[in-house]
Amino acid sequence: MRFHTRKWVKPEDLNPSGTLFGGRLLAWIDEEAALYTIIQFDHSRVVTKFMSEINFMSSAKQGDIVEIGIEVIKFGKTSLTLKCEVRNKMTRETIITVDQIIMVNVDENGVPKPHGKTRVEFVKDRLESKL
């Protein structure tokens, strides 16, 4: 799994118990999944269709640095299925796992649209092929 993004847990990210609010973490995961999918599809219109069971395994507190890892499970005709792990950057302790996140490529009307991709592509490879 590749860990692409790091977030610093700040006071506004905390719940009343003084730990990272789960809703904030899920928003970070959703954003990361969308960005990852946009880069893979080379198209900015994507939506989250599904998130499987979310497994909170530990917590984070103010000042912790968490990193979000995304891995492709499969390419569908209009979708990309991902899995996610968030962990504490310093201790490597897993905070949360999400086994499936399904992102869908859509047209300007929000209708699923084939993306034509079959494998993970890296931006650097796209840039090199254009030279």
Rank of each mutant, 00 (worst) to 15 (best):
K113W: 00
V123L: 13
H115D: 11
N105G: 08
L127T: 09
R6K: 09
L20W: 07
I54D: 00
L131P: 03
F3R: 00
K10D: 11
N105Y: 06
F3S: 07
L127P: 01
S79A: 09
V111Y: 03
S17T: 14
A34R: 05
K83M: 14
G63A: 11
E53Q: 01
T78L: 09
R119I: 07
K74F: 06
R6M: 10
F75K: 09
G18A: 15
I73C: 13
R126P: 01
P114Q: 15
I54Y: 00
S129E: 09
E32Y: 07
F56H: 03
V46Y: 02
L14V: 03
L35W: 06
I96F: 05
L127G: 08
M90E: 15
E53L: 00
L35P: 01
L26Y: 05
N55S: 13
A33H: 00
K117S: 13
G110Q: 02
E108R: 12
D13E: 03
T81D: 15
T48A: 14
I38R: 10
G69V: 06
W28Q: 09
W28R: 08
L14G: 09
V104T: 13
I101R: 03
E121F: 10
V72H: 06
E67F: 03
S129A: 15
E121W: 04
Q62T: 13
N55T: 10
I102M: 05
R119L: 08
I102P: 04
Q62D: 10
R24L: 10
T97N: 00
L127V: 09
L20M: 03
T19A: 15
K117Y: 02
M1H: 12
E128K: 12
T97S: 00
H115P: 00
D107E: 05
H43N: 08
K124M: 07
I65Y: 09
T94W: 11
V47L: 15
F41G: 13
I68W: 03
A27S: 15
M51K: 01
E93I: 04
V9C: 08
E32W: 01
I101A: 12
I38A: 14
V66Q: 02
V120H: 09
K117I: 09
S79W: 04
E108P: 08
T5Q: 04
R6F: 01
L25A: 10
I70E: 02
I95T: 06
N88Q: 08
P11H: 12
A60V: 01
I29L: 09
V46E: 07
I65W: 08
V98F: 00
K117F: 10
F75A: 15
I102G: 07
K74V: 06
K10G: 07
K61E: 14
H4N: 11
G76H: 08
P11W: 08
A60C: 05
Q100M: 08
V111F: 06
L20A: 13
M90S: 13
F122I: 07
D125E: 09
N15F: 02
R24Y: 03
D125H: 07
E71W: 02
F3Q: 00
N15Y: 04
K89T: 12
Y36R: 13
W8Y: 13
E32K: 11
R24T: 11
V104G: 05
H4M: 08
E12S: 05
R2S: 10
A33K: 03
H4I: 03
V86K: 02
V123E: 06
N15M: 04
T81E: 15
W8M: 14
I38W: 02
K89E: 15
I102F: 01
S129M: 10
E12M: 04
M51F: 07
M90H: 11
P11N: 13
R126G: 07
R126S: 08
